[in-house]
Structures are given as C-alpha cells and as structure tokens.
C-alpha cells in the first residue's frame, strides 16, 4: 500500500515534469520560429539562463521575501490563535469585537499599504505587516471553529479528572482544535505567499516583488520572468513545508490502515 502510494507520487511527478518540459520546449521552439523579441516575450532559455546567471542576486531577494513571509505569517498565528480562543471563550468579544474584525477584513489590504508607508516608511517590515493582515483572518476563523466545536462531553471527562482550566486548554482544547487551526494556517500560508509579492511591489526595498518591480522599470522582461519562477518556487517551498509540518506535528490526522 505504502509502496503503491510512493509509486503513485513518483509517477505523477514524472508526468508533471514531462508536461512542464514539453510546454517549455514548445514555447522555446515557437518563440524562436516566429522570432519574438526577448524584451517583449522572453524564451525559456532566456529567463532560465537569467535565473542561472543572476542566481545570487535572485536568491538574496528570495531570501528577503521568505523572511517577510515568515514574519508576517508567524505574527498572524501568534495573534489569531489566542484571539480566536478569547473570542470563543468570552461571548461579549464575539458579539462586540468579531463584527469589527469581519469588517476590517473586507477592506482591501493592499490599500492599507500606502497608509502604512506614510506612517512607517518603506521597508520589508511594512511588507511583513501586510502579509500579517492577509493571513490573519483565515487562521482566526478556522481557529475559532476549532475551539468551538470540541465535543462538550470532553469537558465532562476533563472536569471529572479534576483538570484545571490550564490543563483543560493545553491537554484537551488546543490539541482538539489543532486540525482546524492547521487548515486555517494552510489557507493563511497561501494568502501570505500571494500577498507578499504585492506587498513588496508597493512597500519594500527588498524581496522578489521589489526586484520584479525594478526589472519592470528597466524593461528587463527576462528578469521579471525569472522573478516569477523564483516566487513560484518560494510558494512551493512554503506550502510543502506546511504539509510536512502538519504530518510531523499531527501524526494522528493521517488515516490509519
């Protein structure tokens, strides 16, 4: 069974890579055939070559972007999980604070960018703040759902054990809510890697978004494409890390036999 799955993964990876390879090959041949200028629409060999030639610079920006994602996402988790618990535990907060949060979430967060620039100036920290705003809400909503939908009879069990509130939280409620928190975090990380590039467009002097914006100013389209690929790789790394993290942290969430 395990071998079958592993084989399945390997097989689909090979098919996926072959498809991407075929697409790039076709692109290369067609662009060459019709003699499309590089400054308009670069060939794969142009931007892949650029990725190789400028890899140090691109990696530097990719690192900056990654750090921004980590900062914004970590802040998002650290704020929304405790806040979700507070909102679920205190009915007044759910009635008073939660509608405000929902309203704030409706506002387009990229608009907040320019406001933040006026307040704090330009820099990666502002991007991190925008990333935080992007991923905060999905984590909050799912964490609230997780904390709310714990079987109430579980509290009977914990109270009959004489568990303190603290033990009730750490041993029962938080782990029971973890799968829901994780599904929020998975949406959150997607939002974060999506948002970080836009945040860097408007509010940063480092990172892949900033690099792409600069390349655009110089009409350096192949660098823009190289940046796009680097951004996709960063997103892939974060999404995979999240899945691995989930499997390590919650071995029970996988199906048994």
């Amino acid at each position: 069974m395990v071998r079958q799955i592993a084989f399945g993964y390997g097989q689909s990876a090979i098919i996926g890579l072959a498809a991407v390879g075929a697409l790039l090959g076709l692109w290369e041949v067609l662009a060459d055939w019709y003699d499309v200028p590089t400054w308009l629409f670069p060939k794969p060999s142009d931007f892949l070559g650029r990725l190789g030639a400028d890899w140090l610079m691109i990696a530097g920006h990719a690192m900056a972007t990654s750090i921004t994602i980590l900062q914004g996402f970590a802040l998002g988790v650290l704020v929304s999980v405790p806040l979700a618990y507070a909102i679920v535990s205190i009915p007044a907060l759910e009635r008073g604070l939660y509608p405000v949060i929902v309203f704030l979430n409706i506002m387009p967060k990229t608009v907040i960018g320019p406001i933040l620039i006026i307040w704090f100036g330009i820099g990666p920290l502002i991007s991190a703040l925008i990333v935080f705003l992007m991923c905060f809400f999905p984590i909050l909503v799912d964490a609230m759902h997780g904390f709310k939908h714990v079987d109430p009879r579980l509290f009977y069990i914990s109270r009959s054990m004489g568990a303190t509130n603290w033990q009730g939280f750490w041993k029962f409620r938080l782990p029971a809510a973890m799968p829901a928190i994780f599904s929020g975090m998975k949406i959150g990380i997607v939002k974060a890697v999506e948002g970080v590039i836009i945040a860097e467009f408007i509010a940063s002097d480092a990172g892949l978004g900033f690099m792409i914006m600069q390349a655009s100013a110089f009409m350096d389209v192949s660098l823009m494409f190289a940046g796009l690929i680097a951004a996709a790789l960063v997103a892939l790394v974060f999404n995979s890390a999240m899945s691995i993290f989930e499997k390590v942290l919650m071995p029970w969430s996988g199906r048994g036999h």
């Binding site: 579980l154 009977y156 069990i157 109270r159 009959s160 919650m250 969430s253």
Partner: peptide, 19 residues
C-alpha cells in the same frame, strides 16, 4: 462539585484523536 473519584464512559468513546 464534580467528583474526581470516578470514571466515566459515554456512548461515544470520546478519546482524544491526537493521543
């Protein structure tokens, strides 16, 4: 108050998935 010198079993096992 709740007695702790007791064991309780419900119809659903109410085990913790994560343990």
């Amino acid at each position: 108050k709740p007695i702790s010198d007791v064991g309780i079993v419900f119809q659903d096992h109410l085990l913790l998935d994560f343990r």
